[in-house]
Design a protein around this nucleic acid. Sequence first.
DNA 1: CCTACCGATCGGTAGG
DNA 2: CCTACCGATCGGTAGG
Lengths: 190, 190
Amino acid sequence: MPKQSKKELIIQEAAAIFKHKGYSATSMRELAEKVGMEAASLYNHIRSKDEILEEICFKVANQYVSHISMIEDTDETNVQKLRDLIQLHVRMIIAEPDEVSVANNDWKNLSDTKKELYKTIRKGYEKRIANLIKAGIAAGEFKDLNVSVALFTLLSSLRWIELWYKPGRDISPEQLENDLMTLLINGFQK
Amino acid sequence: MPKQSKKELIIQEAAAIFKHKGYSATSMRELAEKVGMEAASLYNHIRSKDEILEEICFKVANQYVSHISMIEDTDETNVQKLRDLIQLHVRMIIAEPDEVSVANNDWKNLSDTKKELYKTIRKGYEKRIANLIKAGIAAGEFKDLNVSVALFTLLSSLRWIELWYKPGRDISPEQLENDLMTLLINGFQK
DNA sequence: CCTACCGATCGGTAGG
DNA sequence: CCTACCGATCGGTAGG
């Protein structure tokens, strides 16, 4: 069994509650109850409610950034890079659905300075995917679409998974990845 | 100029703030300031904070439902119905970006009974789109994909628009619709 | 539509 | 890790 600090446990439970009710609607007393201690005791492990949200958001953001770096460093075709990106998104969402969901939905509640940092990181990530799309268009691999439309359609079409996918679903991660790739790369039409 | 009741003004301003900060993180005092009155005075026009959220969520939900009914009543091909659906989503988001955004993101904060009702309406809507997709597959118009994957990819790929589109963007609603349709129906690949 | 105010709950601290 | 508790803020009401 993996060793997990109390702080990690608190953050994990917090992510689950935040996902379900949202950060602002979740009280520290509720979190404490889930973790099995009094609200005041939480503060022996974490500095503030804010800090929990920060840890979740930046952990997720950093994982996404390291993924795109990996993909950029290959010398595959742009279509294959797009496939890799879709696969990495799917796998990250399946591995940590709560954290990914909270980062995507509750980053607005970060403190002003952290929120600006988060937005900067996210914009950098989007820029790198936009470059991938541009390269694909320039190479004649992708259709000549508006880059922003392609970028955000891609990113948001991967976001329902965090809300929908549960281990009990009658679809394997592999089939999910395959259908998603087919849909995004070749579209609905037969 | 259209006549708008104070209640409508309050709901409109509330939608804008809720979209920006989230329902739970928005106080009635903040809303009152935006509207130009004291917090207590809001209650001459609305019953509760809850009620504002309900009005926004169900107004949007009912609009979506009436749209799908219109589409079902045509005798177009399923591909064309899919196009119509995309177009209606885009136009609704452009017409009322705040309300649509709040309904999509803050429905979790509805009271328990209203939340159940909202989920029921949404599931009904999803079911009808799933049937459209199934009909398209059966008719040989759409690829034989997992229906849930196709359904949620479609719906969520239309959701970034509410966060991104502003009148000042260098893309017209028409081009946005066209690029989105091309992407969803025929995919990224050239 | 405002002043005045309520009880409840919030995030967080002191002290052990 | 708990008991006890703080100041701030919340949604909302009374009364005019």
